[in-house]
Write a protein that binds this DNA or RNA. Sequence first.
DNA 1: CAATCTTCAGAATTTTATTCAGAAATACCC
DNA 2: GGGTATTTCTGAATAAAATTCTGAAGATTG
Lengths: 156, 156
Amino acid sequence: MDVVLDNTDLQILERMQANARISNADLARELNMAPSAVLERVKKLEQKKVIQGYTTQINPTTVQQKLLAFIFIRSSEGFTCSSNTAQALAAIPEVQEVHHIAGEDCYLIKVRTADSSSLMNLMRTQLQHIPNIASTKTTIVLETVKEQQQLVIPKI
Amino acid sequence: MDVVLDNTDLQILERMQANARISNADLARELNMAPSAVLERVKKLEQKKVIQGYTTQINPTTVQQKLLAFIFIRSSEGFTCSSNTAQALAAIPEVQEVHHIAGEDCYLIKVRTADSSSLMNLMRTQLQHIPNIASTKTTIVLETVKEQQQLVIPKI
DNA sequence: CAATCTTCAGAATTTTATTCAGAAATACCC
DNA sequence: GGGTATTTCTGAATAAAATTCTGAAGATTG
């Protein structure tokens, strides 16, 4: 079940990570391969879930999402951070990330809303109803200098 | 300079955010428009930097990136968190995000590496050489429940 | 109300995606 | 090592899509 990727796969991933809408024809030209061969590899990378999806990066402020916050959430269950709590957090559309973390707190979530009042509103209406939340500690982002999820693709 | 988006633009953004590789023809069919009209809008959204790019989501573990960490960085400059420090942090490929945050710390960064030893190595070789870093506080992610940068697209 | 700008549809053309057959390369197994 | 199976590739054919362009419809402005 483990996935083995050769150099060609990594080249494909690197280029598609930088531009998901690159045409298969261009990709084939860059790799000096036939388009059919490249297409077959991309399909397999999708099947093997190496490629999890293709997304468009939208400037958040243009769609009225000006506030970004990270919230540390302490669970009242001690060690057994239930997956129910995590699932409930993940179900909130404004919550972009839910991480189970090491240390005193249990979860770290990343939230994006229109402004501070809508964050307040979200915490009142959504977080309050989620079980086993003992306390929260919110960090407000003043300015984002870099934000991408580009991975460093290894070279073989 | 402010960007005004109508309902059609938002529909396009919503669909392209969910699948950046949707064909222009399919998009046009879903919106009941001519492909040429849709293409024109997408081009404009790119020009206006509403669309910042198209990226492929790659399963991090398949490319040997098993460790995720958040690091709070305290600056030695007090209030004046220099942009030099931020730029230096942003220049590190393993650093996916650099946020200037409110509160006692100055920056919050998101880092992805192969494992804990390569994180240690990165902190030794990279962070040590960045000026004005007074202290760091690292939070290790044990498990990621949700991770996406999909925005909630407003309805008009 | 006319002039201007924007957005759109539809057709023509170029380019691409997709499929398929068979060749080359690779891995596998006595 | 020799033969077989499997994978991966190329190249050609076809279907589909991207792109460009023209002119019409709609909205905006003075």
